[in-house]
């Protein structure tokens, strides 16, 4: 038996919104420690890895590990039936071929349940090596979203250049060029507005805008985003979920032909 109850059900809606752009289907691995998911987009250029720890749920029971393969478009249709203030419970029997979502209003006066068919997905799990990144940038997630959106008007790719002074995002295209520079700024009133750079050595890497824009669907999940970069290895874009876990995206840098 698997059962996970989340009073803050809107969080689950936001998590799904953050991955359904990139993934049509994925397997939610449910274990005693929590729920995890790892999947590449269909072109195998980017990867989503998320973790929702069991202690972040209001009630969590997982007698034995279950893999819940889901069509995420269909899951999103069902999640749209939950209001933002609903309590959401996910339930599945061991070896079941369906999963049940229960939505309760805060006053318990309306309870809805939706049963969805599960899929048998052939999932390939990738080993992600531990990396000491040359640059780690922490910045407001809304700012990162804005920069990705703005520069994708200019070109298909964004060059992210990081030094200890700051981080620069650049794009070039038929119409011209655009650059956005952010200075390191830890002395702000609100922690979430800070731009903090931890640099071992400077890096400059090129990434496809369309994937970065998909990653920014996770913006409502966290006030800050963390970009981890090293030469010739995939970028990690991480959104931390308070007291719960994380959503991470990996994107291979473009290379000169």
């Amino acid at each position: 038996m698997f059962e996970a109850r989340l009073v803050q059900g809107a969080l689950l809606k936001k998590v799904l919104e953050s991955i359904k752009d990139l993934l049509n289907e994925a397997t939610w691995e449910c274990a005693a420690t929590g729920i995890s998911l790892q999947a590449m987009d269909s072109s195998h250029v980017s990867l989503v890895a998320l973790n929702l720890r069991s202690d972040g749920f209001d009630k969590y029971r997982c007698d034995r590990n279950v893999s819940l393969g889901m069509n995420l478009t269909n899951m999103a249709k069902i999640m749209k039936c939950a209001s933002n203030d609903d309590v959401i419970t996910i339930k599945a029997q061991d070896d079941a071929d369906t999963v049940t979502f229960v939505f309760e209003t805060p006053n318990q006066e309306k309870i809805s349940d939706y049963e969805m068919k599960l899929m048998n997905l052939d999932t390939e799990h990738l080993g992600i090596p531990d990396t000491d990144y040359s640059c780690i940038v922490k910045m407001p997630s809304v700012e990162f979203q804005r920069i990705c959106r703005d520069l994708s008007q200019i070109g298909d790719s964004v060059v992210i250049s990081c030094t200890k002074e700051g981080v620069k995002f650049s794009a070039a295209g038929d119409l011209g060029t655009g650059n956005v520079k952010l200075a390191q700024n830890a002395n702000v009133d609100k922690e979430e507005e800070a731009v903090v750079i931890e640099m071992q050595e400077p890096v400059s890497l090129t990434f496809a805008c369309r994937y970065l824009n998909s990653f920014t669907k996770a913006t409502p999940l966290a006030p800050q985003v963390q970009l981890s970069m090293s030469s010739d290895v995939p970028l990690v874009v991480e959104y931390k979920l308070e007291d719960m876990g994380y959503v991470r995206y990996y994107l291979a840098p473009k290379i000169e032909d």
Binding site: L126, G127, P129, A252, P253
Partner: peptide, 14 residues
Amino acid sequence: TSKQPTLSKFFTAQ
């Protein structure tokens, strides 16, 4: 011009 490699170049299947 630049080329977009896939993640299989960096991560190995387990």
